[in-house]
């Protein structure tokens, strides 16, 4: 493994880097480090993938039907999906 002391300094930048939030100067210096450091390249790739995986889980988020109907009942609102059937 590579010496970590040096790479450590890049960690916060790597997070900003995957967000595209680095100034062009800092970005250039990080990219030149990435060219010669495989470890940091892997950290960049796996960090990106980590974020993607979590982001994708949000697409499957669903409100359970019972929770939904109790919510509408509590608010005295008609649930557009259930046509006025309130929780028992």
């Amino acid at each position: 493994m590579h010496e970590h002391g040096h790479c450590q300094a890049y960690l916060k930048q790597i997070s900003d880097y995957v967000d595209g939030e680095l100034s062009s100067e800092v970005c250039a210096s990080l990219e030149s480090h990435l060219k010669e450091c495989e470890n940091c390249r892997i950290v960049v790739n796996t960090l990106r993938k980590t974020i993607d995986l979590y982001h994708d889980t949000a697409e499957n988020d669903d409100l359970p039907d019972k929770v939904r109907s109790r919510l509408f009942a509590r608010l005295n609102l008609e649930d557009p999906k259930q046509g006025g059937i309130h929780g028992s």
Binding site: H4, N39, N45
Partner: peptide, 12 residues
């Protein structure tokens, strides 16, 4: 503290 990355494995 921010710890140094320990797992360096490209699982992408």
């Amino acid at each position: 503290e921010d710890e140094a990355p320990f797992e360096i494995l490209d699982w992408c």
